[in-house]
């Protein structure tokens, strides 16, 4: 069984934001009205973080796509009282909406702040597109949601590979963000397969994980030629 993981090459990434929009439409993530968004209730399963160092004009900046790290040892799963978020098949951190009671413990526990509470119900034409992706359910108000590595695509891919009478493998599906990346900065695949592109990149000297010292073992790796300690 593959263990899905992602490598994002920050040297290749141009911060174009395409992944962010692709994620929103693929996953029917609602557009949070501006008043609510100002309260910090905006929802982007994938955001582009911006970090600046130095003083003008000796200034450097990095843009970094930020999404659920699918931690192998995920702090969020340990605090969920109802088993709505847990480490599921393929090493994915699941978020099962009908189980979620909206206590938001997991949001507090997540060191990466990539889980979002749904404060406002989606409304078609205002918060939600009129053309929803039928493969992804629209979350109701009152639950926590997050990036799923486009798990619904895996659900479909599993059906396809079974019809082809073979086992699912690293290249059988990619999330929407990876699929659309013009700079091919994102690589997705099986971390368990040492020969897969994603494993080789994750093992490269440029690779690092966010907040490695916490021991959460994220399955999203970043590549950068810059010194990782800066």
């Amino acid at each position: 069984m593959p263990i899905w993981g992602m490598v994002i090459d920050l040297d290749r990434c141009t911060g174009c934001g395409g992944c962010m929009a692709a994620c929103k439409v693929e996953n029917n993530v609602q557009v949070v009205p501006p008043g609510e968004a100002l309260k910090g209730r905006g929802m982007h399963w994938l955001t582009i973080l911006s970090r600046t160092e130095g003083e003008y004009p000796d200034v450097e900046a990095v843009l970094q796509p930020d999404l659920c790290m699918m931690c192998d040892d995920a702090p969020c799963t340990k605090v969920c009282p109802v088993h709505a978020t847990y480490r599921g098949a393929y090493g994915l951190v699941a978020q099962i909406y009908p189980r979620c009671i909206g206590c938001r413990y997991c949001m507090a526990a997540c060191p990466y702040t990539v889980k979002f509470f749904n404060w406002t119900a989606g409304e078609e034409g205002v918060n939600l597109s009129s053309s929803l992706n039928p493969d992804v359910s629209v979350r109701p108000k009152g639950v926590v949601e997050k990036c799923t590595f486009c798990y619904h695509r895996l659900q479909k891919a599993k059906e396809r590979v079974r019809a082809e009478q073979r086992e699912i493998a690293g290249g059988d599906y990619v999330p929407a963000c990876v699929e659309m990346c013009p700079a091919k900065a994102m690589t997705f695949g099986d971390l368990d397969d040492g020969e897969s592109p994603v494993s080789r990149l994750a093992a490269s000297r440029r690779a690092s994980q966010l907040l490695e010292h916490l021991g959460t073992e994220p399955k999203v790796y970043y590549l950068s030629k810059r010194d990782r300690n800066v």
């Binding site: 934001g17 395409g18 929009a21 692709a22 439409v25 009129s130 053309s131 659309m180 013009p182």
Partner: peptide, 27 residues
């Protein structure tokens, strides 16, 4: 029913990529 937009990987210019606005066509 139209339910989604993606890039066209056959396009040698975009290589299947789109800018953010490219995803807003159906909206």
């Amino acid at each position: 029913l139209p339910v989604g937009i993606a890039g066209n990987p056959l396009d040698p210019a975009s290589g299947g990529g789109l800018c953010p606005a490219g995803f807003s066509g159906l909206w």
